[in-house]
Simulated assay, not measured.
Amino acid sequence: MRDLLITLIVLWILFKAVRRPAIGILGWVWISVMNPHRLAWGFAYDFPFAMMMAAVTVLGLVVTRDKRQFPVTPATVTLILFIFWMNITSLFAINFDQIYPLWSRVMKVLFMTLVAMTVLNTKQHIRWLVWTLVVSLGYYGVKGGAFTLATGGGYTVWGPEGSYIEENNSLALATIMLIPLLRYLQLTEENAWIRRGLVLAMGLCAVSAIGSYSRGALLAIVSMSVFLWFKSPRKLPLGLLMIILIPFVVAFMPQKWEDRMHTIQTYQQDSSALGRLNAWGMAWNLALDRPLVGGGF
């Protein structure tokens, strides 16, 4: 049933995308970020919906009469130069015979990013894009937060299998990045009930990140909270809310979560932390040794 429902939704978006490529981009973002097909168990699970959506969106970009104009700004020019340079450096990769899978994945995403910049050219388009991201990631953030509360934080929150956010650290990062977007919508939404729902979603996303048992997520959510507070026009109520909620959530989590977070202080004895530090050191040394072309994918 899920397979059929997802397929019907995708077919409807594909039909609309031929004439409205902006809808195709939103559909591509939804499939790529949320991975709804990974929530099914039949033929849809491995079906290349994202590739189909990208192909039809590019076709729509060619045939549509909608306004399409790539924005030439310092940021977009820098991005294009960066893409060009990644392809140049790939020719000098240390393991050239192994770069294709990652190179292909990155180039597909960046190509569709350029297409998105071309067709999403109004304020309403950008708002639709934000809502698409909020719905796509908010599903897992709200679900993960509710799961953490229902189980007393006794289990790790994971993302959908076979996706970019499957791993607990990746899902935690995504839900933390989502909170500022939820805050933006909450500040600009006119409907009071939707605003209340967005506030609830922000809280559950934070709980989901904590329930991931990711130490990086704990550091990130503290940093993000401080940043949000500095940017907020209503610092006092937001500050009071954080002062009340953060100790409550920490006290709610079980002892094994606290033990996990305390290992931040003893990272010298943790293989995971040491592995990351070694990776950073290796990347630094590689950059010094090959400053222009790096090591490749």
Rank of each mutant, 00 (worst) to 15 (best):
Y45M: 06
I94A: 09
F49D: 01
S90K: 02
P101R: 09
D97E: 15
L81T: 04
P101D: 07
A54H: 03
I99P: 04
R65K: 07
H37P: 02
N95E: 13
N87R: 15
F96M: 10
T73A: 07
R105D: 11
K67E: 09
R38A: 09
A75I: 12
L81H: 05
N87D: 13
W103V: 13
H37V: 04
A116E: 01
F47M: 05
M117T: 01
R105V: 15
M117F: 14
I88A: 08
K108L: 03
A93R: 00
F84G: 05
T78S: 05
V62E: 13
P36H: 12
V109G: 03
T78G: 03
D46T: 12
I99W: 01
I94D: 05
T64P: 03
Q69F: 09
F43W: 06
I94C: 04
L39E: 11
D46R: 15
N87E: 14
G60P: 03
T64W: 13
L91R: 15
G60E: 01
R105E: 11
I88N: 15
A55H: 08
M112T: 04
I83R: 04
A44L: 10
A54F: 00
V62W: 12
A44Q: 08
M86Y: 03
M112L: 07
D66M: 12
V63I: 14
V106L: 08
M117A: 07
L114K: 11
W103E: 08
H37Q: 10
V106Q: 05
F70D: 02
F82C: 10
D66N: 08
M112R: 06
P71E: 09
F70S: 04
P36N: 13
F92Q: 11
V77S: 06
F47Q: 02
M86G: 00
M51N: 09
L79Q: 00
M117W: 05
T89H: 05
M51Y: 10
W85K: 04
P48C: 14
F49Y: 00
M117C: 13
V109H: 00
A54S: 05
T57G: 05
L61Q: 01
A54Y: 00
V77C: 06
L39Y: 15
W103K: 11
A40I: 07
R105Y: 12
G42P: 06
F84D: 02
R105G: 08
V63P: 09
R68Y: 03
S104G: 09
R65M: 07
V72I: 10
T73S: 05
P74H: 14
F47R: 03
S104K: 07
Q69S: 14
H37E: 12
V115F: 02
Y100K: 12
I94V: 12
A75L: 13
N35G: 13
